[in-house]
Amino acid sequence: MGIVKTKNLTFEYIRRDDEGNVEGVTKAVDDVSIDLKEGDFVAILGHNGSGKSTLAKHINALLLPTEGSVIVDGIDTLDTDQMLKVRQTAGMVFQNPDNQIIGTVVEEEVAFGPENMGVPTKEIWKRVEDSLKAVGMFAYRTASPNKLSGGQKQRIAIAGIVAMKPKCIILDEPTAMLDPKGRAEVLRVLHELNEKEGVTIILITHYMEEVIEADSVFVCDKGRIVMQGSPKEIFSHVEELKELRLDVPQVTELAYELKKAGIPIKDGILTNEELVRELKNVYYR
């Protein structure tokens, strides 16, 4: 069984009008069953309001299912006695770097999670050092988070989660408010954590370029998982993705346009090298 498993997960919330009367019920997550393998780099795509954030918050037990269940490393999130264990196993990083930093000094910020868990002082120091090194921010350990760039702030937020030694990290659009440089920094750190430490990464995003190197991709729409597969498989469906308010990487789009114009190249091209190879095949045939 995988590290994160949902079974018929459904989450409803009740809409109310100004007077507090019930207007109706919205299913933010609708019958989702997924099984994520430990050690994978998983990407979840979806437009704004597709339910992907709501889904993510279930994995961290910030929200509990209306129906169905979420099992994180063998623990049912509905088992409220083990809630802290779930949150420690599946750490969560949010979109706005400013709104998730509690500490006023970098190292104290990173220590916040371990402190809550009751980790002994000596061990906290070691964890803070290790996790700041893991995200390449050790040199800034005594800096004020307010003085850092967006990408650096997000790396601190990630270090704060890493210090809790989670098996899995869920990131809810961590790059949405960053510039390209900050985005690249965060992505590099995530891949390193995934490869070196074997941490399962669940990345929620709507930047297509960030998905290319994932092991598996899920696409959300109206609270349901509408597509799943490898990046190659997902990006072979250019039209469907566009209908879901999404996009494909530029090179994929170019290959797709060429194919539409009658050049016989395969679907789901994700890198420049692949395109060059394909075009060579066509050209020298």
Binding site: Q250, E257, A261, N272, V276, L279, V282, Y283
Partner: peptide, 30 residues
């Protein structure tokens, strides 16, 4: 992309910056 194609021996228009332009340049070549 156009840079890489050029290096691989395709005489494409290296000044193309949009998908539309790139597409037309590659199609012309092929």
């Amino acid at each position: 992309i156009m840079e890489d194609l050029y290096k691989a021996g395709f005489d494409v228009d290296r000044s193309a910056i949009t998908i539309e332009e790139a597409k037309n340049s590659i199609l012309n070549l092929l």
